[in-house]
């Protein structure tokens, strides 16, 4: 049976079923997630390190939080006008700096993680609580 090594048709029926199933799964997931994806003035910024709560800060107050661990993360809450309210990781001493490259977050349910430092920054609360989704 050498046929298995030949490319065959580029797309078969099973491929379409697989892709459709994954797309449906992603859409359901996105719908579930978007329930928390709203902007709220009274939302909180929740920081955990290695699963333990490090601190909860209101999104409405400008603040800079420096988290020390295996590495250092500098988290900035930019407050002011609702349009500029956002949370980002402004600096990190970890080698990859994926957390710094991550887009700023501002909606409920969004998060930034720093894997080397086991840090998670997420926006919780607001009108629709998504705490049920997290641990």
């Amino acid at each position: 049976m050498t046929e298995i090594n030949k490319p065959g048709n580029p797309i078969r029926r099973a491929d379409i079923i697989l892709i459709a199933a994954l797309l449906i799964l992603a859409t359901i997931g996105a719908a579930l997630v978007s329930r928390g994806g709203v902007y709220a003035d009274d939302a909180d910024v929740r920081i955990t390190v290695d699963g333990a709560l490090y601190g909860v800060y209101p999104i409405g107050e400008a603040r800079e939080i420096v988290v020390q661990g295996n590495y250092e993360n500098r988290i900035v809450i930019e407050a002011g006008d609702a349009d500029v309210m956002q949370v980002r990781v402004a600096g990190a001493t970890c080698p990859g700096k994926d957390c710094v490259h991550h887009a700023p977050i501002r909606l409920g349910g969004q998060s930034i993680v720093c894997l080397p430092n086991r840090l998670s920054v997420e926006i919780t609360g607001g009108e629709r609580d998504i705490d049920a989704f997290t641990y």
Binding site: L22, L23, A26, D50, G51, G109, S111, S120, Y135
Partner: peptide
Amino acid sequence: LIVKNAAIFTSLPLLLISSI
């Protein structure tokens, strides 16, 4: 599992679509 927090799962749907 590394950060011991499930919050990052909220980014899975979009990542899944980009992976498709």
